[in-house]
């Protein structure tokens, strides 16, 4: 698959900020939520949230749709899938997947005990 460098740059730039990653978590867990729903989960100003949403949308990590007067937000998994496709193989993803599962399980246990 041919690379569209400008797209990948936008994706990595959008992901390179903890606030934007948090917004992505919120939208992923609540497909169809509105900008206000995102603002409610943040101490950030509405203008700040809008700015971050714009960058996430430019990278197509978030897709928005107008429904009546509301603008609804959806998480688009395709850009991250393309990063995954580029740097993993069937073999490496199998083992890497097992490694991350072990990490999550152990860390979850530590958190419960800790």
């Amino acid at each position: 698959m041919s690379e569209q460098p400008e797209t990948m740059d936008l994706v990595f730039r959008a992901l390179g900020h903890p606030g934007r990653r948090r917004i992505l978590d919120i939208v992923k867990n609540r497909p169809g939520c509105c900008v206000n729903d995102v603002c409610d989960s943040f101490s950030m100003s509405r203008i700040g949230v809008m700015k971050h949403l714009r960058l996430l949308e430019d990278a197509t990590l978030i897709v928005s749709e107008k429904e009546g007067r509301a603008r609804k937000l959806y998480h688009n998994a395709v850009p991250i899938q393309m990063i995954y496709d580029r740097w993993t193989t069937e073999y490496s993803s199998f083992w890497a997947g097992r490694m991350t599962k072990i990490k999550y399980r152990v860390e979850e246990k530590d958190e419960r005990n800790g």
Binding site: Q4, P31, G32, T60, Y74, H75, N76
Partner: peptide, 11 residues
Amino acid sequence: TTKIVSKIHIK
């Protein structure tokens, strides 16, 4: 029910 959106740019 839920809604799932996938978007891509194609040359």
